[in-house]
Amino acid sequence: MTDLPPPLPHTAKEQAQAAPKWPASRMLRWIFGLQLVFAAVLLGSDMLRVLPQLAFPSSAPDITQPLGPGDQTRRYDPAQIDPRPARPGSRPIPTTTDMPSRLEFVDAVWDGQPVITLTGQIAPGDAARFADFLTTVDPAPTQAFLNSPGGSVQDALAMGRQIRSLGIGARMTATDICLSACPYLLAAGTTRTVEDGALVGVHQHYFGKNTALPAFMAVEDIQRGQGEVMEYLSDMDIDPLIMRHALLTPPDEIYLLTPDEMQTYNLTTPD
């Protein structure tokens, strides 16, 4: 008599029980291998972003070189930007010899009015520090003097909203700089004064540095960040077309705005 094959499973439970099972060790090796592939893809995407800048660094002139018509792009490295000597009496306090690695807040009196100065790079967490600082200033400042090579976009936006809510003006003297994320602080002033010789510049931003995120999530973060910036500029009555120059300028370069451009985009206000 011929042996018949066992009947095929019909129910989902029977099919699951009849399916071959992977040993736990084999499953762990498969998961580990998938993680290695995922890490390699992320590392490769980061290297593709960074390598062009390393292999072909910016050939733009140094930021201290004078501007010319259509010649407004300069090399940008916030760690190598030092304060320029200020004219006596042009600022409420003397300019330091080194640009601080995070914002320094000082309250002072200038031209008989209470003011504050914001000097240095904008580091993550500076918005919370700034909020605490403002609670210690009495009387309330009328203006904020800016001198910063930029830094954290999210902190700049949060600080800018604090400046606008308190009705504080923004001011730059002839030797001050306001680059990268700093122009969002300038945009927040109820009045916005930039003296001739001051440098105001924009470029592309990084809105997140978490390399554990998949590429599509990183792009999503960038788009969300750009949306927040556009909403912020609208709230501050700044022409969002100013972002055209930022989006076309890579992070290792800076596009310096001319006085006429700042007026056109409403970044400065009439005297």
Rank of each mutant, 00 (worst) to 15 (best):
T191R: 12
S25W: 12
D176T: 00
G70N: 02
H10F: 13
A156W: 02
A16D: 10
Q226T: 09
I222G: 09
D98R: 12
Y255W: 11
H205Y: 14
L267T: 04
M217G: 05
A108W: 06
T191V: 09
T190M: 14
K209Q: 07
P85Q: 02
A246N: 00
L34E: 07
Q223K: 08
N147G: 02
A215Y: 13
P9N: 03
R102S: 09
P88K: 07
Q121E: 14
L118A: 00
D126F: 01
H205A: 11
E261D: 08
A246S: 04
D271Q: 13
G68Y: 05
V194D: 01
P240G: 04
I177D: 01
P66A: 07
Q143D: 14
D176H: 01
L103A: 00
T193W: 05
A218Q: 15
M262F: 12
Q204I: 03
D46H: 14
W22M: 11
G208V: 08
P7L: 08
S59A: 15
I177L: 05
E253H: 05
Q35E: 12
L213H: 08
F130P: 00
S58P: 10
G70L: 01
Q226G: 09
R224C: 05
T73Q: 12
A60N: 06
Q143W: 12
L199I: 13
R102T: 09
D71A: 15
G201I: 05
Q35M: 15
G225T: 05
I254E: 03
P94S: 07
I177A: 03
D111Y: 13
D176Y: 00
A128I: 11
R129P: 02
I93C: 13
T73Y: 12
E14F: 04
A86S: 10
D98L: 11
E14I: 04
R129D: 05
D82N: 14
I238S: 10
I122L: 06
V194S: 00
A181M: 07
L48P: 01
D3Y: 09
